[in-house]
Structures are given as C-alpha cells and as structure tokens.
C-alpha cells in the first residue's frame, strides 16, 4: 500500500543550522495496518505524513503509493494519485467554513471523477453521530463534531490510506475514542492508517507502533 525507502528531508533556514527532519526513513504499510508514530514535537512526524501523502517532496529516497513512485509523477498526476488513494485528517480539521457539515464531507469527493459520496456520506454521518447537524455550518459545530466531520470527509471515498496528523489533539476522551475507533475499524476493513500523535492512549488502537526521534523512525 505505502512504501517509504530511505527518505530524507532537510529544512534550511536562512542564517540558521540545517534541520534534518527525516533521516533515511524506511517502512511499509499494508492493508489492515494501523500504524501510530509517536515522538516529541519537531521530530519530523508531520513532515513524514506530508511526504507520504505526496504533498512534500523528499530530498532523497522513494515513496511508493499503490505501487506508484509518487514523486516520479507530475504535480497533477500526484494530485490525482492522492485524490484516489489518500485521505487526510488534521489536528486543526481544516474544514471549509462556508459549507455545511454534509457538504464538507462531500467535498472529499471533489477530486473524484465519478460520484462516490452521497450514500457513503449518509452512512458516515450516521456512524459518527453527525446526522442531526448535517446542515449546520462549521462555525455551529463543536470541536468533536468538527473532527468527526473531517474524519468522515477523509473516509467518504474510501481511500486505501488515511494519514492522520494529531487527530485527537484537540478532543476530549469521548470524541478521541470515536475518532480512533473509526480509524481502527477502517483498518480492520482493509485500509491502512498512518497516525501521528502525542497521545499515548492512541497507541492502544494501533497494531503497529513507530517512534520517531530527530528524523529517525524506528518500529517498536
């Protein structure tokens, strides 16, 4: 599903030292894998997620997504690949403020040529207990509802890989449970999840555990 081979990424700041965000990172995820990545702030977790999602070119190494070399593709082909195979969940939700909850979920299907979303959106709203707020704007939703909406948007077209960046960082335990449980169920159904988190309790839902420190990833 996802293969990272010796990927490295460096940030160069003007007048400052070079920061090595990823150092020769190698790992692979298969369908059914729910991988958690833990580590201190600034260790390169988010960079790893963006590189895996085809949003940030690595300085070295190779990322394979659905057996395609992600960074050998043109930006538009990469976007198409991302749209077809990857769903993102962010700590800040990044919902579209002028759309209703339902439309935000459906916006996950914008990159898809064929409509994949209507029924799936209804199912997800029921499963994530969002049905009552279907027509509410983002500003009218609670934090937990926003993150559940973001999760539903990531899942609506049933991608093969979910990349989740601190999805429970702003949530209370109940909402955290709902989100993580949903991700676990998604993995059990044959998807793959790469979860970046600070939250130790999150690891309980994962079936593979990674630790990252100073750009080095190790599976524990």
């Amino acid at each position: 599903m996802l293969g990272c081979h010796n990927i490295s990424k460096r940030y160069t700041q003007k007048g400052g030292p070079q920061i090595e965000a990823l150092r020769e990172v190698t790992f692979a995820l298969s369908p059914g894998d729910f991988a958690s990545v833990q580590g201190p702030s600034g260790c390169g977790k988010s960079t790893l997620l963006l590189v895996c999602g085809g949003l940030l070119s690595p300085d070295g190494g190779q990322v394979l997504l659905a057996e395609t070399d992600v960074y050998a593709q043109s930006p538009n082909d990469r976007a198409r690949l991302r749209g077809r195979h990857v769903g993102f969940v962010f700590q800040q939700f990044h919902l579209i403020p002028y759309l209703s909850l339902r439309d935000n979920i459906l916006s996950g299907s914008l990159a898809h040529e064929r409509g994949c979303a209507e029924t799936s959106a209804e199912t997800l709203m029921t499963r994530l207990d969002l049905h009552d707020r279907a027509h509410h704007l983002v500003s009218a939703l609670s934090i937990g509802e926003r993150q559940r909406t973001a999760l539903a948007r990531a899942l609506v077209c049933e991608p093969q890989l979910i990349l989740a960046d601190e999805p429970t960082g702003n949530l209370d335990p109940d909402n955290s449970h709902i989100v993580l449980q949903s991700l676990a169920e998604y993995a059990q159904a044959g998807g793959a999840v790469l979860l970046v988190t600070h939250d130790p309790s999150s690891t309980g839902y994962a079936n593979r555990h990674f630790v990252m420190n100073r750009g080095v990833l190790r599976e524990s």
Partner: peptide
Amino acid sequence: RIEIGILRAMGLRTRS
C-alpha cells in the same frame, strides 16, 4: 489559503 491547501491535499489539481 487553508481551503486551497486542503483542496490540493484532497487531490484537486491546479486546474480545478
């Protein structure tokens, strides 16, 4: 800007 970022992350091409 964030909306553009998230739309790009969801797979929308520059043309879209």
